[in-house]
Structure formats: C-alpha cells, structure tokens
Design a protein around this nucleic acid. Structure first.
Lengths: 137, 137
DNA sequence: TTGTATGCAAAGCGTTTGCAGTGAT
DNA sequence: ATCACTGCAAACGCTTTGCATACAA
C-alpha cells in the first residue's frame, strides 16, 4: 500500500504551490525547504508515482527536459519565456488542425508551444535561437 | 580550413536522401552503408558543423531526442506518426497565434507538432500515450 | 513486525570531449 | 609536412536502479 511520507508531501506541495510546470531539480529545491536532506532520486520516484496515480502530468517541450505540473488544468498548451526560460500554461487552443496535415495522413492530436516574453520579462533585449520550424505568431 | 572527407559526404548524403528528420543514430546507420567503420562521435561532430554552416537544421519535438534535416524546406512544422514514430514535414502553418497568449505576454514565435497516422500506418490499433497538453485536431 | 520509501552510489542513455593516430591538402 | 578529421574511450548531464537502512502502518 502507498505510504504518506514527509518527502511525498513536500513534493506534492512544491508542485501545488508553483502554479507552473517544474523541472525535477526545481521540485527538489522547493521540497528541500520542508525536508532538507531529500535526494533527487526520491523526487524522480515520486514524480513517477504521482504520474501513475494521475495527480500530475508531464509537460514535454521541444528541446527541453521534462517538466511536471498538477492536474486539473484541462486541455491547454504552453508558453515559454525566451528570457527567463520559465514555462506557463496557455488556456487556449487553435482548435482543429487536421487541415494542416499532408494528404493521406490522419491527425489524432497536436501539441503547441508559444515562445516570447512573459509578463515579467517584457522589454526584449536579444533573440532566442531556435533554428527549427518557426514563424512569427 | 574545412576538408572533404568520406565520412562527411556520407553524412550529407544520408540526410539528403532521407527527406525527413533523422536521429543521429539513423544518420550513422545510413552513412555506414558508405563508410562501414564510422563512429557516432563523427556523426555528432559533423551534424554540429553542418548546423553551423547552415546546411541542416535542428528538429526538436516534445519528449524526443533531437533530429536533423536538410535546409531549404522553408517555414514548416512537423508530424509524428504514433505508430512508426517517424517524423515528417508539414508544409502548412496555423498562422498568427498571438491571441492565444495570456494578457501581458508577447508572442514572438511558435512551434507545432501534429500526431497521428502517416500514410503507411493508416489502420490505428492502439493509442500513443501523451499525458501532456492534448486536444483532438 | 512488515515491507514500502528513502538516500546513496552505481548504472544507463544520449551527447560531448580529450587524445593519439589518420589522411586531405 | 601540416593540421583538420577520425575512432576510441572517458566524461557529462539527466534519469533510473540496486541495495541496505529508515520509518509508516
């Protein structure tokens, strides 16, 4: 049976409080304010457990290490700030994109990431380098 | 100065012939048909060199290792088959998506990945597991 | 008491780098 | 003859796993 430990609570709390997707290392740092000695392996094991029980979900962005966020945000996409690198939820969706696929292909799902400046990083000094598929918008 | 080696040609040829983004390991396998003894380090070094000279471009998809494709495809996005895992170019774009961002955020760019069945994998047997942001379309 | 959860360290996996030898110029 | 390039193996960063101990039930 699953046991309630200080570590697990601290990890849950960290994700709950963040209100945005966190990297495992960010989870560890946050959780260590409650349980100083915590190890990174415990974070990984608990993230996996929380995923399995559906309490959190995986956030994979192009070229980024996996992040994790609490569930219940409904269908959404993500925005990554080109300055602070943080990731935020986008509670909007372009809708049906089947028309974009090549003929003969069947679209079942899509993933969208917006890039730009978050509220706290407004004046843009330099540009993020993303050599792959890009387009203003 | 840059030198022309059998390895470099083989790597170039592999990417040219593929007509879709390849993983470093796929590049190696393809290139080894021309240069059997080639090592993976040579592939990585040449991919980096080709990137720098602008001959190829990086294709980062969520939760996937980096792929590489020849340049000159213009602005485009990608489609990943949920059956064979291969990635294809999508020569279409949803257009301006600024409206999707939260208030106070500035959108500079976006990245889109479509998931579904490619032409060769049409009858869908099972579903790909993507716990993160998803929506039919 | 029982056995899940933890911390540590080692192992894995993809990628990068140091180094001595190879080969294009 | 140079010196960039190559292959090999070690090093890296992130993630997973084995193992003995700790602690929730």
């Amino acid at each position: 049976m699953e046991r309630s430990t200080r570590q697990r609570s601290a990890i849950r709390d960290a994700l709950q409080a963040a209100q945005r997707p966190l990297l495992p290392q960010e989870v560890l740092t946050a959780a260590q304010t409650q349980v100083p000695g915590m190890g990174i392996a415990t974070v990984y094991r608990n993230l996996k457990a929380l995923l399995d029980e559906g309490a959190i979900q995986l956030v994979s962005l192009p070229g980024e290490n996996p992040r994790y966020e609490t569930r219940g945000h409904g269908h959404h996409h993500h925005f990554q700030c080109t300055a602070c690198e943080r990731v935020f939820d986008v509670h909007a969706c372009p809708g049906d994109l089947s028309r974009l696929a090549p003929a003969g292909f069947t679209v079942e799902d899509h993933e969208l990431t917006l890039y730009g400046r978050c509220r706290e990083c407004q004046p843009p000094p330099a540009r993020r380098q993303r050599p792959s598929s890009s387009r203003p918008g």
